[in-house]
Amino acid sequence: MTQTVTRWWLVRHAPVVGAHGRIYGQDDLDCDCSDAALFAELAILLPTEPVWLVTPLRRTHATADAIHLASGGMKPEIAIEPDLAEQHFGDWQGLTYADLEARRDGVYHRFWHAPADHAPPNGESFRDVIARVSRAIDRHTRQHPGRDIVAVTHGGAIRAALAVALELDPERALGFSIDTCSITRIDRIDGAGEGASWRIVAVNRHPQNLAR
């Protein structure tokens, strides 16, 4: 039976700088791409001729650029996919957790009782993130069947992708640890007469994470 395997390589961006303990979500902050050895190892682990995706946030662009620089090859065409962006925390972006604790409207406490379903004011819930990440995965899998797709994205989006692949309750998907500069690999398997299924190849693979 012929099968088509589309391989998703989900890379979390490099460490954010300038957050100073504040919730940043979709705030467009810089990241630290100074560890050349780390990016050289990432370049070795990733496929050589994939489809490249980043989000509208510049920390994913900078991370992709650092990987390409480390590989020594020409920079490929990169598409921007907004549906793979980090969770939007609405009015909470730019605030510290202490700021939220001090509020008396009760919204923050309700959020942490059910973080997958409650959205910050003018923001989105994690369940919302899963819905849009699922759309992006389905769309690009249809557009690039049988290809390697490298998406430089965010921790929340990667957890959402795992929720899609494993059909997890959103609350359980929040339990995944996703380090910066780590690789999570999920394969979409389509076969005639068999529908579609997912294979989880790696989660949070990082050159240093086993030593942490």
Rank of each mutant, 00 (worst) to 15 (best):
P207A: 04
A70L: 09
A14N: 03
G73H: 02
T153M: 11
V54H: 04
D190E: 14
P145Q: 04
H61L: 11
R142N: 13
T2G: 03
H118N: 01
A70E: 06
I149D: 00
D128F: 09
L42T: 04
T184N: 04
L95A: 14
A163Q: 10
H206K: 11
A151W: 06
L168E: 00
D28A: 06
T60S: 05
D128R: 12
V203M: 07
L166Y: 03
I186C: 02
I44Y: 00
G21N: 04
W9S: 06
D91N: 14
C181R: 00
S177F: 03
G146D: 14
A202R: 15
V51D: 06
A66S: 09
V16I: 15
G146S: 14
R7W: 00
T4A: 06
R135E: 09
S134N: 15
G155H: 04
P15Y: 03
T55N: 01
D105M: 09
R188A: 05
A211T: 09
A36I: 06
A151M: 05
A211P: 02
H88T: 01
R172N: 11
V11K: 02
D83H: 12
P207T: 07
V203A: 08
R188D: 00
P115E: 08
G193E: 07
R7V: 09
G94M: 13
A70R: 08
